[in-house]
Computed example of a mutant assay.
Amino acid sequence: MAFELPSLPYSFDALEPYIDAQTMQIHHDKHHAAYVNKLNSALESQSDLQNKSIDELIRDLNSLPESVRTAVRNNGGGHFNHTIFWTLMAPNAGGEPTGEIANAIKDTFGDFETFKTKFNDAGAGQFGSGFVWLVRTRDGKLEVVSTPNQDNPLTDGHFPIMGNDVWEHAYYLKYQNQRPEYLKQWWNTVNWNEVNNRFAQASR
Rank of each mutant, 00 (worst) to 15 (best):
I105A: 08
T189A: 08
D121G: 03
P160G: 13
L5A: 05
P153S: 12
A102C: 07
F119Q: 06
E56H: 09
R73N: 12
F199A: 04
L15Y: 01
P17M: 06
T117L: 11
G128T: 02
V144N: 07
I19Q: 02
P91G: 10
F199M: 04
P153C: 12
M162V: 14
H31Y: 12
N51T: 11
F131R: 10
N51R: 12
T137A: 07
Q150N: 15
L64I: 11
F12I: 03
W133P: 01
T23H: 04
N75H: 15
R138E: 07
N40R: 04
K106Y: 05
F119W: 06
H32Y: 06
L43F: 06
Q50S: 13
Y182P: 07
P97K: 12
Y35V: 03
V36I: 12
T23E: 00
N191S: 09
A2S: 11
W133E: 04
H82Y: 13
N75Y: 13
S67K: 15
G140F: 03
D151P: 07
N74I: 14
M89Y: 04
T108M: 01
G140D: 06
V68T: 12
I26Q: 10
E181T: 15
N51I: 03
P97V: 06
T83P: 00
S203T: 14
E194I: 12
S53G: 13
P180I: 04
Q185K: 14
R59C: 08
A124Y: 04
G95T: 11
Y35A: 14
A33V: 02
R136P: 02
L154D: 05
I58L: 15
E4K: 14
K118R: 15
P17W: 02
G123H: 05
G130L: 05
H32P: 02
M162I: 14
K30C: 01
V166C: 14
F115V: 07
T155A: 15
A71N: 11
R198F: 06
E4W: 01
E16Y: 01
H28S: 03
Y18A: 01
T147H: 12
S63F: 09
G110N: 09
K30M: 05
G128I: 02
L15F: 01
W167H: 15
N149V: 05
A42N: 11
S11H: 09
E56M: 01
K174P: 01
T108L: 08
F112V: 10
S53P: 08
N37R: 11
G128L: 08
E194H: 08
N193L: 08
G78K: 06
F12K: 02
A202P: 03
P153H: 09
F127H: 09
H82Q: 13
A14F: 05
L134V: 04
P17G: 05
N74W: 08
L142P: 03
L173C: 04
S129F: 04
S45I: 01
T23F: 07
S53T: 15
V132L: 13
P17I: 02
G125T: 02
I19N: 03
V132E: 10
S47A: 14
T137R: 08
Y182F: 15
V135D: 10
A2N: 05
S47C: 00
G130W: 07
Q150C: 07
D107N: 13
